[in-house]
Amino acid sequence: MRRIIAIALLAIIVMGISLAVREIPFGKTDTKVGEYYLNEGREETGAANIVTSVVVNYRGFDTLGEIAVLFTAAIGLGAVFGSRKKRKVAEEVEKSSLIVYTGCRFLFPVILLVGAYIFIYGHLTPGGGFQGGAVVASAFLLMYLTCRGKRVRDKSNKVVESLGGLIFVGMGLVGLVIGKGFLFNFLPKGEFLTLFSAGIIPIIYIAIGFKVGAELAGVLDNLIEESK
């Protein structure tokens, strides 16, 4: 019965959406906003990656909200688990084999390096703070899976999280005080296609990278510890 209702409901929505989508041609975009960013983005923000210039500069406020969403989820996760009575059980941790253990210890800094590269070069190449942060967190996941028993240090994790967010907000506020508005790109744009270009964009993306990495590592830590 439930299925029949579900299918009937879906059929109605299919009809509706296909009627609406017919008017949206595929493969042709002449959107006003997108065109403007493509044509003016280089000049106005100095970033070679236009997606980055949209994410961090034109729609930077969204990104601020976005890291707030991630922060909310990370903190919410902690709150959901925080009310539970902590059981102190000395667990027998089975050690992983020497090859896996050594291999992962070797890979760990390399993954961190890749992550850092992705968020530092976010304004020049594909990538950015969120992607880089996710890669950094994956390094921590690897450590959890192999070097069992090791945990992210809670305090330093918190400090990185907080500072990342505060740097983003702080850059925005400096723009508000000395420039034309919140998140105004007040630093010199630099030479196009070099690392030190695009003003505040790399700084913000590095802060986001650290913050996202710390947050996702914290989320993994919470989920792994609590589901034992």
Partner: peptide
Amino acid sequence: HVFIGGFSPPFCI
């Protein structure tokens, strides 16, 4: 009206 980032709407938030 506040324009975030100092661009003019609709290109900014």
